[in-house]
Computed example of a mutant assay.
Amino acid sequence: MAGTKNTGRSELPGLETPKFGPTGRPLREFADPAPLKSHGPARIISLCNQKGGVGKTTTTINLGATLAGYGRRVLAIDFDPQGALSAGLNVNTHDALTIYDLLLGSAKDPSAAIQHTSVEGLDVIPANIDLSAAEVHLVNEVARETILARVLRKVSADYDVILIDCQPSLGLLTINALTASHGVFIPLECEFFALRGVALLVETIDKVRDRLNPAIELDGILATMYDPRTLHSREVLERVVDAFGDAVLETVIGRTVKFPDASVAGRPITQFAPEHSAAKAYKQLARELVARGAVA
């Protein structure tokens, strides 16, 4: 009828028209997770994508900080020679024990390499450019794919979640991370070239499951850098949902300049701009992962 407004309600009295999110599914609010009565052993999750610049490090930092805010004990592993995770949490990597020392056996105790951050409950094992030489040194080691798993086994009981920020490749370091992990989390930029590599990554996860780690699961695909104003972002997200269905998380992380600002400040977005929509999105993400059972 002419002049009738869309009120957001169905024509049946008392029934609300459901609101839909960017993934095309009805929007849900996930409840705050209940406090844990005890801690450990940790569930180990790799944040993995062979394409760079898709939000792996940003997600590791902010998901870790948010889970710590919900009372979880979180250990983040910087597994990228660029050391962006360490820098983004203002962690010292100069003359400090790093994950490289633990992989090569020059340091035996992982707890000696753990550094605390400004976020209570969030710790880091840092990395620096030395890690770029690790694949060359490890290639002749016996059971080289399981070295990280043996390192993390020594500290797993002290944490609820261990997040591994992988480098943008599918080399030996990433295989080590997948072999050590219970779950894989794929941040995916809403851009066509990022979409192309997901099938190869899922194939790699399947090979690791078949040959090295039968317990590994795909915990979810997280759409990042989403811009609802562009048709391209909307189409890429639609194609991902069509291809992977419920594996795509309902939470979507939008594109914002607040992320690089927070990185420069060496703080997670939840500290740097706690009322910003990006901080709220990562809180929603943490609650969704707890609701899915990916995190305790």
Rank of each mutant, 00 (worst) to 15 (best):
R9L: 13
G14D: 03
P22Y: 07
T23R: 04
G24N: 10
P26S: 09
R28P: 00
A31Q: 14
P33F: 04
S38Q: 08
S38N: 07
H39A: 11
P41R: 05
P41A: 00
P41S: 03
A42E: 04
S46V: 10
C48H: 02
V54M: 11
V54C: 13
G55M: 08
N62A: 02
L63C: 01
L63P: 03
T66Y: 04
A68H: 05
G69T: 01
V74H: 03
V74Y: 03
S86M: 05
G88I: 10
G88Q: 10
L89F: 05
V91S: 01
T98F: 04
I99Q: 05
I99F: 03
A112M: 12
A112H: 10
A113I: 08
I129F: 12
I129Q: 14
I129G: 02
I129T: 13
S132L: 08
A134C: 02
N140Q: 14
E141P: 01
A143N: 14
R144T: 00
I147V: 14
A149Y: 05
L152E: 02
V155H: 04
S156Y: 01
S156T: 10
D158C: 07
D160M: 07
D160W: 03
D165W: 04
Q167F: 02
S169H: 11
G171S: 12
I175E: 04
A180Q: 00
H182F: 00
E189I: 00
F193K: 06
F193Q: 06
F193E: 01
L195Q: 15
R196W: 08
L201N: 08
V202E: 06
E203A: 13
K207S: 11
K207I: 10
P214F: 06
A215I: 09
L218R: 06
D219P: 03
T224N: 02
M225L: 15
D227P: 12
S233I: 04
L237W: 07
V240R: 01
V241F: 03
L249H: 00
E250Y: 10
V252T: 14
I253S: 01
T256S: 15
V257E: 11
K258R: 15
F259W: 01
V264Y: 05
V264M: 10
V264F: 07
G266Y: 05
G266Q: 02
I269M: 10
T270F: 04
K280D: 10
A281P: 09
Y282D: 06
Y282R: 07
A286I: 08
V295D: 02
V295K: 07
